[in-house]
Amino acid sequence: MQLLHITAPAPVRPPASPLRRDVMVAWSLMVLIAALAWVLTVGQARGMGVGPGTMGLALPLFLLLWLTMMVAMMFPSVAPVALTWARSIGRGSSGAARAVRTTEFVGGYLLVWSAFGLVAYGLLTLTGEAVRDHPGAGRWIGAGVFVLAGLQQLGPLKRVCLRHCRSPMLQLLQYARFRPWLRDLRVGAHHGLYCLGCCWGLMIVLIPLGVMNVAAMAGLAAVIFLEKLWRYGPWLTRAVGVTFLVLGVLAPFQHWLLPGLAADEPSMGPMGPM
């Protein structure tokens, strides 16, 4: 007697919803933009080297380079928040409308970091002049920056802002109450302020390490990403804070820790004398 083997039909997966496809496209696009920003940053850094201060860059060029650096360093960690906001606003909206609103969110976020770039330019200008006039001052500037960054990592402002960056859903729901006028831009800027409060201590260590130090940028970007998305991120925050305090103690006696505060000749990059 021959037995009939009946094979059950394979389950048919429902097609991905337009919203889900748009989110996947947006995620891929942000990753691609971050990768391109890294390529541009590394290419420029190779021509400039590591030196004190702004390395002779005029303010507009510095801000352009700073914004590229922020895209490279921050997009991997801000992408989940931007996409969560896109999903929350996406239902009932067309793909084009979601793309525009997500772009506004990212624009508001970058606007905050561009404003911080003005502060960074001022600090780098002051430290660069101090190192040129008093080369020995670099060790104490570096020590002070590391200690300040360590205290910020261990302080209450860091905990509050990091808590928001790690679990932004409640805040995103509150953002829905914002008035419609430029709401997405303001939401991005509001989240950017939390991110700035969380990460400004990490950014200022580029003063002693060098604003164009690619290895330092990559390390800081990894710390920022893990602090916000890794389950042990808060523990990493404390470990990095203690490390900065130790570096602050060692900096006056270990000059190799301060490549960004070592006075040298202006570099010759692809854009000419810096």
Rank of each mutant, 00 (worst) to 15 (best):
P76Q: 04
R87S: 10
S77E: 03
V71K: 00
V100Q: 07
A99L: 12
A97F: 01
G90H: 05
V100M: 07
W85A: 14
S88M: 14
L65K: 11
R91E: 13
A86T: 11
R87Q: 09
T84D: 13
S93I: 08
I89A: 08
P80L: 12
V100R: 12
L67Y: 13
T84P: 03
R98I: 09
R98T: 07
M70Y: 08
L64S: 14
L64D: 12
T84M: 15
S88A: 13
P80N: 14
T68Q: 15
V78H: 03
I89S: 06
S88Q: 13
F75Y: 02
A79Y: 01
G92Y: 00
R91S: 11
I89T: 10
A79W: 02
G92I: 00
A82R: 00
V100H: 04
G92L: 03
G95C: 03
P76D: 09
A72M: 01
A72P: 04
A86F: 06
A82G: 12
S88L: 13
S93Q: 14
A86C: 12
S93N: 13
A96Y: 07
G90E: 04
R98G: 01
A79L: 04
W66K: 07
P76W: 03
T68I: 14
A99T: 10
A99E: 03
M69T: 10
S77G: 07
R98F: 00
L83H: 07
G95W: 05
L64M: 15
L67H: 14
S93Y: 00
R91C: 08
P76E: 04
S94F: 11
W66R: 01
M69P: 01
A97I: 06
T84W: 14
P80V: 13
G92T: 07
W66E: 01
S94C: 13
R87W: 08
F75C: 01
M73P: 10
V100Y: 05
M74K: 06
A72E: 04
A97R: 04
V78M: 00
M73Y: 11
M70E: 02
A97W: 05
V100I: 10
S77T: 07
A97M: 07
L65N: 08
R91F: 12
S77K: 06
A97K: 03
G90D: 06
W66T: 04
A82T: 03
T68N: 15
